[in-house]
């Protein structure tokens, strides 16, 4: 916090502390925020798998139902047989994020080696890619062969899709910010830590997306004789 830094070590303009100190602090902060987000992913997996294994009222992937008494008071028409979602869509989106994440890390690496130009173009491509992926994610949710109302499977997949979509939008904003900040020189080979933080975040987004895509391995509920609502038999 001294007025005149003794060395020409780069200092934060806001607090006057060495950049390395600020970087360590921020890295811990981002890692802890990721811890909180991990819990969110755990809940999504948990709700998918829980409903999958219970298959309450034979409504995981319902095979046609008559009209139902409905607690929400909303006008819901129960479908016939529900078709599962197309699997490769999930993997395509996860794969896309993976590629973008690697590209971003490449940019960070070259930034650390001293070249801002690669980082600028990598961040720009990643931003556009992430926006494209969020559009793809939106289209995927809209193209599901079922509505959110169609049982446990439909519910879980819809919310997973929305969660992915919001994650992608946030990541696109972060990548765009890195692009702009590198462009105006705020992020430079001497001060690359914010790009690293976003790369760490993208890594987690990739992992989360792959974990959620793995849920598609669990499709047909093992519970073939589940409890039927309002009855004592099954």
């Amino acid at each position: 916090m001294s007025a005149q830094p003794e060395t020409n070590e780069l200092r934060s303009p806001t607090t006057g502390e060495p950049i390395a100190v600020v970087a360590r602090r921020n890295l811990l902060g981002v890692l802890l925020l990721i811890v909180a987000d991990v819990s969110g992913t755990i809940v999504l997996c948990m709700s998918y798998l829980y409903l999958h294994y219970l298959n309450t009222n034979k409504s995981w992937l319902p095979e046609g139902k008559e009209s139902l008494w409905n607690t929400t008071g909303m006008n819901i028409t129960w479908p016939g047989t529900v078709q599962p979602a197309v699997e490769w869509h999930f993997w395509a989106i996860s794969g896309g994020i993976l590629v973008l994440m690697l590209l971003f890390w490449q940019g960070v690496r070259s930034l650390r080696r001293g070249s801002s130009a690669t980082m600028v173009s990598a961040a720009l491509i990643v931003t556009l890619g992430l926006i494209g992926l969020s559009v793809a994610q939106y289209l995927q949710v809209r193209s599901f062969p079922f509505d959110p109302t169609d049982g446990g499977y439909a519910s879980a997949l819809t919310v997973i899709g929305i969660s992915n979509f919001l994650h992608l939008l946030l990541s696109a904003f972060l990548a765009a910010a890195i692009w702009n900040r590198t462009r105006v020189g705020r992020i430079s080979p001497e001060n690359p830590y914010q790009a690293t933080l976003v790369a760490v975040w993208l890594t987690w987004i990739t992992i989360s997306s792959v974990i959620l895509a793995c849920l598609t391995f669990f499709l047909i509920s093992p519970s073939t004789d589940p409890t039927l609502f309002g009855t004592f038999g099954s």
């Binding site: 909303m74 129960w78 049982g151 519910s155």
Partner: peptide, 9 residues
């Protein structure tokens, strides 16, 4: 109108 906590669906 998802059905995470609605047993009928």
């Amino acid at each position: 109108s998802t059905s995470f906590f609605i047993p009928e669906r």
